[in-house]
């Protein structure tokens, strides 16, 4: 059974068809890459999965339950967490608090217990801080916990976004260009991080332009061009696929 199933997904913006009849499945425990030239509709697919946009046609189901018309925060609490292509941290808050944002949906305290700090609230708060610190440890930012997130380096900000997403205790992690702006060293660390995330039993779906990263970590790749799926398969199959090569490099007759 696949964890995430996307069927005949279509999204139009005015006259532009950003995503056209796209279908693919993400199997439990796998790392799947979504690639394609700029403007192919990759981020739109992510925004459709996470409920930021609603599709015009098609279906998205997660663990056999439809995600259509659910608000984003509900989708997160069902177990899909994401990072953003352009980093969207809570800039003026600490690194720890950014991860606590992810922990929010696994906590229960309401207004009254937040205002009076009932014992149950205090236990929950303590447990959340411990969990957030573990997530920071996992991505290697434990010693930065008290810094403001805007003071982190670019690569570390990307890692913090991943830590925040892990704070939601996801079953599927959706990464939008996680290596964007990273140097080679940071990218190598990211590869091992993604492998460790997978080792925790979390399924990963990622958009990435760094082909060496995609070929190294993904076992299945979906290729989009002009909103349509043009290929799907293992890294070896994709590297040999004529249409993919044409899409990326152009054909001789232009």
């Amino acid at each position: 059974m696949s964890l995430l199933s996307i069927q005949r997904l279509t999204k139009n913006f005015g006259g532009l068809t950003a995503v056209n009849n796209v279908s693919f499945d993400v199997e439990q425990g796998s790392v799947v890459g979504l690639i394609g030239p700029n403007g192919a509709g990759k981020t739109t697919v992510f925004n459709l999965i996470t409920g930021i946009y609603q599709p015009d046609q098609g279906a998205i189901s997660f663990e056999q339950a439809s995600l259509l018309r659910l608000p984003t925060h509900r989708i997160v609490s069902l177990g899909i967490a994401r990072t953003f292509q352009t980093i969207r941290l809570f800039q003026n808050m600490s690194v720890l608090e950014n991860v606590l944002a992810g922990c929010h949906c696994r906590m229960k305290s309401g207004i009254l217990s937040s205002m009076f700090h009932f014992p149950r609230q205090q236990r929950e708060e303590r447990a959340a801080i411990d969990r957030a610190l573990k997530a920071l440890d996992f991505v290697g930012l434990r010693d930065q916990a008290e810094n403001l997130s805007k003071n982190l380096s670019y690569g570390n900000q990307r890692l913090l976004e991943i830590a925040r997403a892990l704070g939601t205790e996801p079953r599927l992690l959706v990464l939008d260009e996680p290596a964007g702006g990273m140097n080679e060293n940071e990218t190598a660390q990211l590869v091992s991080l993604i492998e460790r995330i997978r080792g925790m039993g979390i399924t990963v779906l990622l958009i990435e332009h760094d082909m060496s990263l995609v070929m190294r970590v993904c076992e299945q790749i979906v290729v989009l061009e002009y909103g349509s799926k043009i290929a799907e398969g293992s890294p070896e199959e994709i590297q040999r696929n004529e249409r993919v090569i044409a899409a990326y490099l152009g054909t001789e007759d232009g």
């Binding site: 930021i52 608000p71 997160v76 944002a101 997403a165």
Partner: peptide, 8 residues
């Protein structure tokens, strides 16, 4: 947007 995307 990030808050909603973090499950809030």
């Amino acid at each position: 947007v990030a808050a909603e995307g973090s499950g809030i």
